Simulated scan of single mutants.
Amino acid sequence: MKFSHVSLVARDRDRLADFYTAVFECEDRVERWTMSGEQVSKGNGVANSKIYAAWLSLPGADDQFLEVLQYENFEDRPTPAVNQPGLGHLCFEVEDIHATSAAILAAGGAPLGEVTDLGTPQSPVLCVYLRDPEGNVLELEQR
């Protein structure tokens, strides 16, 4: 058994996928595509599914990837809170937490917390929480 991927459901597949490629240097693994039909609906339990998909490579991960899906008919939900049950956040280890935070904000993301050190004086670990352009929670870590 092995971990395969994480999936984000987007309001706008291309906008969200482009955000992850611009800020986190993800790359399209395959050409973006559309899937629909009885088999898709049977598999996901959503009648008449039409899904626009993107599979993005993740930096530092050879086999695992980020899947960004946009359903033609989606059910909107409130922006998730950091402490709500369910998928909590995506975490990226970065070389410069301040530069990456600025890039997230410039690309349409939003701040949540402040950069803080959760490590020790001998081994600092900086972290901060932000949101991607669709409100998903991101954590940045700099060791």
Rank of each mutant, 00 (worst) to 15 (best):
N73T: 11
T21H: 08
Q142A: 06
Q39K: 12
A53K: 01
V23P: 00
A53S: 14
F74W: 07
L140T: 00
S4G: 14
P78H: 08
A81L: 15
A17V: 07
V68H: 01
A54H: 01
T79I: 15
V125N: 11
S41T: 12
L105K: 03
N48A: 09
D117V: 09
Y71L: 00
Y20D: 02
E114P: 07
L126R: 12
A22S: 15
F24I: 09
L105S: 08
K42I: 07
Y20H: 10
Y129M: 09
G135A: 12
A107C: 06
R77W: 05
A47R: 11
Q39T: 13
V40I: 15
C127Q: 13
T34K: 04
E139W: 01
R11V: 14
T120W: 09
V9H: 03
G88C: 04
H98W: 11
Y52M: 11
F65Q: 06
P111C: 10
E38F: 00
V46I: 13
E72P: 03
G113F: 05
E38Y: 01
N73K: 10
H89E: 01
A103G: 05
T100E: 07
S36I: 01
E67L: 02
S101V: 10
L138I: 10
R29H: 04
F65C: 14
R32C: 04
Q64A: 15
E25G: 13
L126W: 12
A22E: 14
G43P: 05
W55C: 06
L112W: 00
G60W: 03
A10T: 02
A110S: 15
R15G: 01
V125Y: 14
G135F: 05
G43A: 15
S4L: 13
S36N: 13
L16T: 03
L58E: 02
A99Q: 13
L118Y: 14
E93F: 13
K42N: 13
G109N: 07
P78E: 14
R143G: 12
C127H: 03
E93V: 15
Q39Y: 06
